[in-house]
Design a protein around this nucleic acid. Sequence first.
DNA 1: GCGACAG
DNA 2: ATCTTGTCGC
Length: 296
Amino acid sequence: MDRARPDLRPDPSLSRAEMEDLQREIAAAATFDDDHALDPAAVAVDEAPSLADGLPPARDGPQERLGTGSGAGDDHDPEAGAGDDHDPDAPVVVGIDQAFLTDRGDAPDAAVSAAVAFRDGDVIEYASATTPLSIPYVPGLLAFREGDPILAALDALAADPDLLICDGSGRIHFREAGLATHVGVLRDAPSVGVAKNLLCGEPDEPTEERPEGWRTPVRADGAVTTAEPGTAIGHAFQSRQYPTSKRVNPLYVSPGHRVSAETAVDLVAALCAGYKLPEPTRFADAHADAAKRDAD
DNA sequence: GCGACAG
DNA sequence: ATCTTGTCGC
């Protein structure tokens, strides 16, 4: 069945009031439960792949990738020709991140979106797309600035995502409709939001100086207008910590769509392999930067 | 009116 | 997010 909702696209030309109304529709269409039995153990990344040798060539030429409806984007397959895939039936996890092109004279600012697909701990595909930006960043309305660019990168990806890891909030949002939730509902794909800063809500416990692996629920506060105060909407998660130097801040993980707050953190924990960011996000971040550098 | 606010 | 070298610590 096709439950994707392309009609709920985060159109940047909407008025602020219309954007907020659309987010309430997104939240209503979203589900913050585990309908999709995604087992964290099935997507776990045990050993962090090397960022150095994992990235695609600086400049991608025409791609002979079949399967995706073509796109305005460049992609690359690092394993082409080298058949060392492990479990071809394991779930595909896609990390997404953006880099930005600004102050380019006449050219408008643009977002360089990267999507990197992982399966059974290995990178199986890279894709990216450059999209002009029409509106500025406004707290709470991030999906209207980065949504279309993200969808363009996903369109350039041949792999079919079983889980999307977005950079930003999901349910931890004023109307429970953050970037991860918006993208997840549009594609009807399980999604999780991973943010480096807390948008709203209140952690159950102080987050300072916590050991690696520590987590605490983030509950709705007065800023979350669509949920009863106290509702668990995500978690603060200490994904990495140095033995001596105590400086790493926790990640703020929340459900995007079709995943519970508990499973969302479990999935992110399983996707972390020694670095602060989960591997799919770490690779998407690096690929977006590389694609940006190569922009002419 | 003031504060708070993902990327 | 972005502008950016060195530098402290494991």
